[in-house]
Structures are given as C-alpha cells and as structure tokens.
Simulated assay, not measured.
Amino acid sequence: MTPADPVDDFRAAVAQLAALADEVAAERSQEEVLEALTDLRVAVTRAYRGRRPRSEFGGARGRILRHLTKHLGEWVGSDEIAAVSGIGEWARRIRELRWEDGYEIEEGRGRYRLLAESPDHARQARFRTVTSIREMKGPVDERVLTLLRSLVGTAVTADELDRVARGKTGATVARQIRNRDLLPIETDADAPDLHAGEHRLVSMREADLLHPSQRLFPEDLRRQVFLRDKFTCRTCRRGHPGADAPADEVFYLEVCHLDAAPDAVVELSADRVGRLARLAASCNECMGASAPPWR
C-alpha cells in the first residue's frame, strides 16, 4: 500500500478547518474542530519528519513570545498560552522569558501580558548575577549574603533568594543573617515600599549595623510598631524612605523601648520587652544620637 502523502493530508485538514469556520463563529462543534487541528498537526509533523522548528529562543519559548508580542499589552489566558506552546511546562518558559531574556511579562488571575516588545537588558544582567551566585560553592548563608551585597540598596525578590538558596527558603536565611550579623536587612515589615517576600540590605558599613537590642524584636512585632507609627521616626519625624534626605544618606527604622536605653532592654522581662504601647519607631540616626527618645 502506498503511504499517504502528508501534504495531501495537510490540504485536507486545512480544508476541513475552513469548512468549520461558521461552527467556530457560532461556538459549536469544538470536538470536531480540535480533531481537525490534530490531523493538521500530524500532517505537519510527518511532512517535516518530526524536525522541531528553530526560533530565537527555541520552539515553545519562541512561540509564546511571538504570540505575546502579537498581542502586546493585551491579557492572554493561560489556556491560550498552553495551546500556543504545545507543551505542559509552558509556565517555566514564561519564567525563562522574564528572567533569562529580560522580557517584562505581567501576571494576574491566570493571565499574562507582555508590556514591552524589547527585552530589559538590566533585567538580563541581574539574572546572570543571580545565576552566578547560585552556582557558587559554600554554605547557603554565604550565597544569600553575597546576593544581598551585590544588590545593596535594592529590593531582592523571594524568587531570587530561593534561587541562590537552592532548595531552602531564602527569606528565612536572610532573616537569620540579619539576626546573626545585625545587618540592616529590611522586609515589608520595615519599609512600606517593599512587597511581601522582598528583602533589601540597606548598607554594608559597620557604622550602620543594627543595635544588638533589635534581636529582641521579631518581625511580626516590628511590623506592628512601624505600621502604628506610619513608618515614621517618633523623634525626628522623618518617614521611610527618607525622601528629604540626601541620596547617599542611610535611613532605616529600628524599634526603641521607651522604658530603657537599648543596652538595657535585655534586662527587661519578656512581657515588658514586647509591650507594644511602650515601643516606638526610631530611625537609625536617632537611635545613635546623644539624646535618644527614651530620655
């Protein structure tokens, strides 16, 4: 028996799809349309002997990018992305387009949209930085600290922290580093411009280390104090992020106890240490001033 010509099968599938145009317009016969599409894919596969198409980023990734570019600025559903990609791991390809290639793709409610046709080269460079740190040997806390140092003064996302932590929760490691080394590492509890999961190392200078008393105030307690005080120092009334301060001036908030100087807080009972009414937000400058707010 002479094997069927895949080109003839292709023409037949195209003709069948064209004949179903009115059914598609009326949102009918979906199963028949999908069957015709399957026949078309099989014919294409046979015609090209199973060779995968080449594109700038590889098959599925390139197809997703072309589709999003065609609908630039429009929301595209995840089911549509899955159909365009032709693979089950399409979500991974979206992440690759974002981080490896620098495309700004917004996500919301299971939908995606490309915001700019050209990639962001700064985003690409940042991805390379995160990847190089991830591949470093040594303990996980060293990798996380290296990431925070390399992006000092910049918000680091939970995804970036997790990437360099390689299997551990990067945010947990960052908090452990803060508590151990007293580095001014902010979370969304400390700064209103940070989103959940983001961390920012404010400064690496020894002069900007947190006071050891800050180990007594966990993140949930800091959050309550700073929210109540509207992220504003109770003494100088400067608010985070200190917009009126010079660009090179370091600003971050600490918790001060109104009943004891920082060095004496450790002598208070646990109940008094955590008494919200006796705690206040203080900027790093006022915490180190000669006339601090507890006097």
Results as ranks from 00 to 15, higher is better:
residue 2 T to M: 14
residue 2 T to N: 13
residue 2 T to G: 08
residue 3 P to M: 14
residue 5 D to K: 08
residue 6 P to F: 00
residue 12 A to Q: 11
residue 20 L to A: 02
residue 24 V to G: 07
residue 24 V to T: 12
residue 26 A to M: 08
residue 26 A to C: 13
residue 28 R to C: 08
residue 29 S to M: 12
residue 30 Q to H: 13
residue 37 L to M: 10
residue 38 T to F: 15
residue 39 D to N: 03
residue 40 L to R: 13
residue 41 R to E: 15
residue 44 V to S: 02
residue 46 R to M: 11
residue 47 A to V: 01
residue 52 R to N: 10
residue 54 R to Y: 12
residue 54 R to K: 15
residue 54 R to D: 15
residue 58 G to P: 11
residue 58 G to R: 05
residue 61 R to W: 04
residue 65 L to P: 00
residue 66 R to N: 03
residue 68 L to E: 11
residue 74 E to N: 10
residue 75 W to C: 14
residue 78 S to C: 13
residue 80 E to C: 01
residue 86 G to C: 09
residue 93 R to L: 09
residue 93 R to C: 04
residue 99 W to T: 05
residue 101 D to E: 15
residue 101 D to N: 10
residue 104 E to H: 05
residue 109 R to W: 15
residue 110 G to E: 06
residue 110 G to K: 00
residue 116 A to H: 13
residue 117 E to D: 09
residue 120 D to Y: 15
residue 121 H to E: 14
residue 121 H to S: 12
residue 123 R to T: 15
residue 124 Q to G: 09
residue 126 R to K: 10
residue 128 R to T: 11
residue 128 R to M: 11
residue 133 I to A: 03
residue 133 I to N: 06
residue 133 I to L: 07
residue 133 I to G: 06
residue 134 R to H: 09
residue 134 R to S: 07
residue 135 E to K: 12
residue 142 E to W: 13
residue 146 T to W: 03
residue 148 L to Q: 01
residue 148 L to K: 00
residue 150 S to A: 15
residue 160 E to T: 08
residue 161 L to K: 02
residue 163 R to T: 09
residue 163 R to F: 11
residue 166 R to Y: 06
residue 171 A to W: 02
residue 174 A to D: 04
residue 176 Q to M: 14
residue 182 L to F: 00
residue 182 L to A: 00
residue 185 I to T: 09
residue 187 T to I: 05
residue 188 D to V: 10
residue 191 A to L: 01
residue 191 A to N: 09
residue 192 P to E: 05
residue 194 L to D: 03
residue 196 A to K: 05
residue 198 E to D: 06
residue 201 L to M: 06
residue 201 L to P: 00
residue 208 D to T: 12
residue 216 L to F: 08
residue 217 F to C: 01
residue 218 P to R: 01
residue 220 D to W: 11
residue 221 L to K: 01
residue 222 R to L: 02
residue 225 V to A: 06
residue 230 K to S: 14
residue 233 C to S: 08
residue 237 R to G: 12
residue 238 R to T: 12
residue 240 H to V: 14
residue 240 H to D: 15
residue 240 H to Y: 14
residue 242 G to I: 08
residue 242 G to T: 09
residue 243 A to V: 04
residue 244 D to I: 08
residue 245 A to G: 08
residue 246 P to T: 02
residue 249 E to M: 07
residue 252 Y to I: 05
residue 259 D to L: 09
residue 261 A to M: 11
residue 264 A to L: 05
residue 269 S to E: 10
residue 274 G to V: 04
residue 275 R to H: 04
residue 278 R to A: 13
residue 279 L to C: 06
residue 280 A to W: 01
residue 284 N to A: 11
residue 286 C to I: 06
residue 286 C to T: 02
residue 286 C to H: 06
residue 288 G to L: 04
